[in-house]
Amino acid sequence: MNYNWDWSILVSEPYMGWLLQGFGWTIAVSSAAWLIAFTLGSTLGIMRTTESRLLRWIGTGYVELFRNVPLLVQFFLWFFVFPEILPDDASRWVKREMPLPAFTTAVVALGLYTASRVCEQVRSGIEAIGPGQRAAGKAMGFSEPQIYRYVLLPVGYRIIIPPLTSEFLTVFKNSSLALTIGVIELTAATRQIEEYTFQGFEAFTAATVIYSVITFAVMGAMRVVERRTRVPGTVALGAK
């Protein structure tokens, strides 16, 4: 193996700037996408557990559609195909005037895709509580929204803290796909450094360290939150 080591490039300009900016975009894409994924995914997950057949059907259809097309293809669909099938005015706006087109598309694509995964977690959390609690809520005269608000969701969300955390980390990692439509996030920035300096080892190591440190930090924080919020006598799904 013939390789000239030069770790100093990581702290020299412009490469350090690229890394920091890349990291910034990674965080921006992940958090914005997570916002969409969490709200939409929760709504869909609740829909899949309601007694309305139509709502359940919509939730199921969404999950089947979004989970069974590769995320990268979904990126391309939103970026290349979606603007074409819009009515003329809207199409022109998306193509010419929409601010930060690559970023916005990445957030939407990643958010809608992850919503299907969050949906499944929320559903399994609610289902894990069992029908007895729902019956007890009804017996006390709660309406269906009240049953969710006061009985099912407070327990359900606590149960799924671990899997939800790993979904968040999945968003964080999947945000790297944004590079395929031109967002220079962390992975893209390191690739760029490799191509400019041929110091691939150093560049990829930087990204690797950042991704793993964030992952382990988030997992650690999750354990603390999980312990603090645990309902006595319940076990978190997928907890180790």
């Binding site: 193996m1 013939n2 390789y3 980390l169 990692k173 999947n174 945000s175 790297s176 796909l177 590079l179 992975t187 390191t190 690739r191 490799e194 691939g200 080892f201 990829f204 990204a207 690797t208 991704y211 793993s212 992952t215 382990f216």
Partner: peptide, 21 residues
């Protein structure tokens, strides 16, 4: 499990030829 697959692909795309020479 803490790494994005794309990064892993880049890593080995870069490493394998380097190791094999």
């Amino acid at each position: 499990r803490s790494l994005p697959l794309i990064l892993v692909i880049f890593w080995f795309y870069f490493l394998v030829p380097l190791i094999l020479g």
